[in-house]
Design a protein around this nucleic acid. Structure first.
Length: 214
DNA sequence: CAATAGATGTCCT
DNA sequence: GGACATCTATTGG
């Protein structure tokens, strides 16, 4: 299990180091779920795209707390997203877990999600939370000493195999390439949506992907 | 495969 | 009242 010191670093340093690690969930009935993290995003207090940017509020309280805890928030009226709190206590930084490759408990994840395709179980922040049964009750859970959520060492991904790019779904600070993913993984989320206000100028900075299937 | 609209609750101006 | 660190179904190629 990763120690407290692992999380007590800047989010930009922790984020790529989380790739290849194993997220473990122990359900109320004792069942064990596990998945290999393949996509994350870093957020910082001096970052307009971060929930902590506008200061401490009831919602973001956990984000300013001690590192190694989980910050869960509710968004778009129906989805939860899960973050790992990083940095020193009092600092509003965290890493959003965006996608993972299922390893154990796939049937249980499928039941939570309502779909069977392994590639659709955890490929997105909302999907990951739904598959893992993570919601409001898990906000603030301790990944280091807690029983319901843990982060095991797994196998870190070599820097050569880490791809970075703009974060997904934000409208500010899009110039900061703080999204990190495992190159070529088929379990990453769909990525930035085209259209909207943009007019399609994202191709130049789009991250490289694995060989296309055709 | 790519693009679009719709659903839905909470936070903050 | 607007925006939101999203997902699904549906449409058209």
């Amino acid at each position: 299990v990763l120690r407290r010191s692992f999380f007590r670093r800047p989010s930009l340093e922790v984020a790529p180091d989380l790739l290849g690690r194993t997220l473990v969930r122990v359900l109320p009935d004792g069942a064990r779920l596990a998945a290999r993290i393949v996509e994350v995003e870093a957020y910082r207090e001096d970052d307009p795209a971060s929930h902590s940017f506008r200061g401490r509020t009831a919602r973001t309280e956990v984000m300013f707390g001690p590192p190694g805890h989980v910050y869960v928030y509710f968004t778009y009226g129906m989805h939860f997203c899960m973050n790992v709190v990083t940095g020193e206590e009092g600092e509003g930084s965290a890493v959003l877990l965006r996608a993972a490759e299922p390893i154990q408990g796939l049937e249980r994840m499928a039941a939570h999600r309502g779909v069977a395709d392994p590639r659709l179980l955890c490929s997105g922040p909302g999907r990951l939370c739904q598959a893992f049964g993570v919601g409001r009750p898990q906000n603030g859970a301790d990944l280091v000493r807690g029983a319901e959520l843990r982060l095991e060492a797994g196998s870190p991904v070599a820097p050569d195999l880490v791809v970075s790019g703009p974060r997904v779904g934000i409208r500010v600070a899009t110039d900061r390439p703080w999204r990190f993913m495992v190159a070529g993984s088929r379990f990453v989320s769909r990525g930035p949506r085209t259209g909207g206000t943009g007019s399609g100028a994202g191709a130049a900075t789009a991250p490289r992907r694995g060989s296309p299937r055709s």
